[in-house]
Structures are given as C-alpha cells and as structure tokens.
Amino acid sequence: MVRDLTALTTDMSLQEAVRIFSMTRVTGLPVVNDKQQVIGFLSEADVIGAIMPRSRDMSGIFLSDFGEIARKMGQARELSVGDYMTERPVTVTEDINLSTVSETMLMERLKTLPVVRDEKLVGVINRTDVCSKLMEDREAI
C-alpha cells in the first residue's frame, strides 16, 4: 500500500483533477468527502469519457465531433469531478490478502484501489505494488 492521502473532492473541476494527476504522476485518485471518507474515484478514463463524444461508431471520430471535443475541453474548468467520477468505487481494507486484491483488479479492470479504515482513506494500492509484492513472494518460495 502507498501511504498517501492525495485525493480529489466533488467540487473540484476536471481541469484541476488533471493538473493533480499530472503533477503526482498517477492515473486516477479517490474522491473524498469532508470526513475523508471515500465516495468516488476519478480516473484518466473518466476524464477522457467526459471530453470525448459519447455516440460514435467504430470508424472513429467524425469531423463534426471535433467541435464538440474542443467545446468540452474549453469547459473542463467548469465540469466537476462529482459529475464524472465513479460513485461507490471498489475499496479494500488494510488486512486484505494479495490474491483478493489481484483478482479484484483483474476482474474489475482497476489500476488503483483506495484502502480504507472505518470508511476513511488511509492509502491506495496500485498494480505496481501488487506486481512488486508478487515478485517478492515468488523469490521467497
């Protein structure tokens, strides 16, 4: 687990969230309320989903879509984290075992899991942590 409490709040703009992703070099962050309880998760994919047109076929983006993309990019400072986050995200507790974390990440296609104690954020666990731990355990066998 990474003992870091960097988090977003629902009233932050997507622009602020992306700035924090960029500066902290993460691909997503938990969203917390004023009691530090985890109420959502915002990933880069959520931000892209907020900006990109929702209806398009497999042939890709239509030329007319670029106008909408540009407009939404311009609006990013007005779009709020609360409107685009994943609500009630999957969380784990500190005592969870590695195999459950690995399975959850694979099944739910999640890169980062918030770790909570009494619903409050105490850290995050990401795929790199899981891989490192798996390698350590393999070496120990």
Binding site: V2, R3, D4, L5, T6, I20, M23, T24
Partner: peptide
C-alpha cells in the same frame, strides 16, 4: 521527500506544486 517519508511508515498528504 515523500518517497522517504512513506518508506519509513509516515502517511503523506502533500499538495503538489508546479
């Protein structure tokens, strides 16, 4: 700074700066 703090078991919650 943050890496060392976390390595020794301190929880961090720093506001990032440019």
């Amino acid at each position: 700074v943050q890496d060392v703090l976390r390595e020794v078991g301190i929880t961090t919650s720093f506001t990032p700066l440019e």
